[in-house]
Simulated assay, not measured.
Amino acid sequence: MEALVAAPALLAQKHLQALKDIHKFSSIRRYHGMLPEKHALLYDQDVLGFLEESNLIEEGTVIARCGSKMTGFRLTDNARRDLKTMGVELDSSEPEPQELPTEDEDGCLTREQIDILADLYHFSRIKKFNGITPKQEIEDYDKRDIKLLYELGYILYIKLKGRAVRHAKGYILTEQAMRLLRRLGIAY
């Protein structure tokens, strides 16, 4: 990563464009902030391979309760920092998509399960965890509660790959869980 800051000429325009495109997907909730693998097929695999080897992107897999998997790519924190240092503008001027109103979603959850969601939210906010709650951080919680939250669609299991990945397996909150936590004043 240090070489990237010292020699920005290593990144060709096609690399920078791929990084910008991957960043655009970071705010799309249904893709969990990742450029989906089906969209990544539009890029030369050598470009994505170079970006992954350079620790600018990491590959992730989100596993839903029905067993389906979504694989994609996201920017690493180092990439965001180094690109900002290089003067590459990543911030999007597009407004955040508005959430659709939903009915009451927390009627079937116990206080302990809501507390687990709150803890997962706070763990995911810790910078060193890169937006996920590492699997080992939830081992002390009741397995039945975790399973129920997963089956009800409040949490998803995620696996990340890449040389810069510190925590490869863990959980992320779904938009359903985030709406609940925002409504309760726990998340913003």
Score class of each variant (00 low, 15 high):
170 G>T: 05
95 P>D: 07
4 L>R: 15
159 K>F: 01
94 E>R: 13
67 G>L: 05
157 Y>D: 08
102 T>K: 00
48 L>P: 01
70 M>R: 04
107 G>C: 07
66 C>E: 13
33 G>D: 03
76 T>K: 06
24 K>F: 09
119 D>M: 11
65 R>H: 11
12 A>V: 15
125 R>H: 14
155 I>C: 03
87 G>N: 06
93 S>F: 14
15 H>V: 05
83 L>Q: 08
25 F>R: 11
16 L>N: 05
75 L>D: 04
80 R>T: 08
120 L>Q: 04
96 E>Y: 07
80 R>F: 07
65 R>A: 14
23 H>M: 13
169 K>P: 02
54 S>P: 00
172 I>A: 08
42 L>N: 13
180 L>P: 01
1 M>F: 15
159 K>H: 08
182 R>M: 07
95 P>E: 07
97 P>N: 12
188 Y>A: 10
110 T>I: 12
148 L>M: 15
17 Q>R: 15
70 M>D: 09
28 I>Q: 06
140 D>N: 08
124 S>M: 10
174 T>S: 07
69 K>L: 06
71 T>P: 00
28 I>P: 05
39 H>D: 12
77 D>N: 12
187 A>S: 05
40 A>Q: 04
5 V>F: 06
98 Q>V: 15
24 K>E: 12
100 L>H: 09
122 H>T: 10
88 V>K: 06
175 E>T: 11
18 A>Q: 03
167 H>R: 12
140 D>P: 02
149 L>W: 00
57 I>R: 00
137 E>I: 00
180 L>C: 12
101 P>G: 06
126 I>D: 14
105 E>G: 03
106 D>W: 13
178 M>G: 04
182 R>E: 13
152 L>W: 06
160 L>W: 06
47 V>L: 04
5 V>W: 07
145 D>T: 01
19 L>R: 01
184 L>C: 06
126 I>Q: 08
140 D>L: 14
165 V>K: 01
92 S>W: 06
78 N>Y: 12
142 D>P: 03
139 E>K: 08
118 A>T: 10
142 D>M: 06
86 M>L: 10
153 G>C: 05
164 A>G: 15
144 R>M: 07
51 L>W: 00
95 P>Q: 06
9 A>H: 15
184 L>Y: 06
184 L>V: 04
4 L>H: 11
157 Y>H: 07
96 E>C: 09
188 Y>S: 15
29 R>P: 04
90 L>S: 05
75 L>R: 02
8 P>D: 11
123 F>Y: 15
122 H>L: 13
30 R>M: 10
71 T>E: 02
152 L>H: 04
170 G>N: 03
56 L>S: 02
20 K>V: 10
67 G>N: 12
23 H>V: 12
61 T>Q: 01
120 L>W: 05
82 D>F: 15
188 Y>N: 08
57 I>A: 00
16 L>V: 14
91 D>N: 14
33 G>Q: 01
119 D>Q: 09
